[in-house]
Computed example of a mutant assay.
Amino acid sequence: MTAEPHELPTARTLEQIIESLKVDRSPRNIRACLPPEDRDHFDKDYRQIMARAMEELDLAPVNDTLAHWWHVARMKASGEYEEVLARAVRVRDQIERGEQVSGRPLRDVLAERAAELGVKLDL
């Protein structure tokens, strides 16, 4: 008898990945929804935070880490990731030049995005 890997299918459309992330926030699904080049980073973060959780008997950092990777998977699947990074670079450059940065508070943006996704955030 051979053991089968516990990987979810990777040949999914971006729409299927986004839908999957709406209903399944398990570490296994989040990892499967990440692009292959991000999975080693996820594995390293997840293993480190689980070891820490075992030592400290605290799952809050685990939940924070999974939330972070969920957002990364969601943004990369929707094509928003590169846009977010480019905007961050522009804002950083403005701040470094001492310029006023326009925009909405991050809390408002996150709350709006969470509502669109049907997710409740405690901000």
Rank of each mutant, 00 (worst) to 15 (best):
D45R: 10
G98E: 00
P27S: 04
R74V: 09
V89Q: 15
D122E: 03
A32G: 02
T65R: 12
A114E: 00
L106N: 14
R39N: 01
R31H: 01
W69L: 06
E116Q: 05
A3K: 13
L57F: 10
G98L: 05
P9G: 06
T65W: 08
V119K: 15
L106R: 11
D108F: 15
K120F: 15
K76D: 00
V91N: 12
E99L: 12
E116Y: 07
T10P: 15
M1A: 14
W70C: 02
P9V: 00
E7Q: 06
H6S: 13
V23Q: 11
T2Y: 15
T65M: 14
L57R: 09
A114W: 03
P27L: 02
A111T: 05
G98N: 04
E80T: 01
L34W: 02
E7F: 08
A111P: 11
D64V: 12
I18S: 11
A86I: 00
L110N: 09
S20F: 03
A88I: 03
A67P: 04
T10N: 12
Q16L: 06
E37A: 03
V91Q: 10
D93I: 06
E55Y: 10
Q100W: 12
G103N: 04
E96I: 04
R39A: 00
P105A: 03
E112N: 08
M54S: 13
S102N: 15
D43P: 04
K44T: 01
A32W: 00
S78Q: 13
L21F: 03
A73P: 15
V101Q: 13
E80Y: 02
A77N: 00
M50A: 07
A3V: 13
E82D: 10
E112I: 04
R39I: 01
H6T: 08
D45P: 07
L8P: 14
